[in-house]
Design a protein around this nucleic acid. Structure first.
Lengths: 122, 122
DNA sequence: CACCTGTATAGACGAACGTCAATATACTTC
DNA sequence: GAAGTATATTGACGTTCGTCTATACAGGTG
């Protein structure tokens, strides 16, 4: 059976089961689209190296060039570049070119989103 | 060459490069052990389904049994059980057995950790 | 212009993850 | 204790992720 078919079957089966076991359904506080957006953000934070990069940028309190960041890890340059890209696309850091170097700094907006999420569910 | 060998080589090479390009090294605000711990937490949040489960529990403002949670998703029972386990082990939800059912509720401590992280880097 | 240096991208590979069907476990009821 | 229901665990499979090497691109310098 197709995947869609299986899903439909499962939902129909649930609808048929008239008696709910305990509490009535409550509308989630996090819609599917909001959840997808937050998941993208948290996926960027779900790696030890990326968290340490954020820690470095926070401690520096100023922009750092890639080679400075790279110097703190026993990882190849492309790997660091990859992590920076993930952080950038999640809105957690910003990049700025200065001549030959690219400087990265924290993007407070992304961090604010993290705090917001935690507070919203509380 | 072994992985360790490669890493050692890379570090030695960096030490040899006497001239740093721009800023002096700053101690990270997030040690390796703290980063690993936070990464574990965020990995649990890095999935759309798990975020929606948290949203459900937050909206309910009371414990929900697994079948109630399950009813909100087109996913198999073992899959939901798996997600609940991940959330449990991250300290984001708590489980409590009541007769035949297991009730899940938010664990504010885990959520507080998320907020703390966001604030700490700011 | 040719060359060098810093950063990004492409492609490959193994590990980890989300999902499922099948099965086991925990508890209740007859 | 046998049967039924709610939840957890196991093992398999395809996908995503982190890492690497090799290479491309961008911006300086002779």
């Amino acid at each position: 059976m197709s995947k869609v078919g299986r899903v439909v079957n499962r939902l129909a089966e649930r609808a048929a089961r008239a008696v709910r076991c305990c509490t009535p359904p409550a509308p989630s506080r996090l819609g599917p689209e909001a959840a997808a957006c937050c998941a993208h953000l948290f996926r960027a934070l779900a790696d030890e190296t990326r968290l340490q990069i954020l820690g470095l940028l926070a401690a520096a309190r100023e922009a750092l060039c890639v080679c400075d960041i790279e110097a703190n890890f026993a990882l190849s340059q492309p790997t660091i570049s990859h992590h920076l890209k993930v952080l950038r696309e999640a809105g957690l850091v910003r990049a700025e070119r200065r001549g030959l170097w690219v400087y990265y700094s924290l993007d407070r907006q992304g961090l604010a989103a993290v705090v917001e999420f935690g507070s919203a569910l509380d």
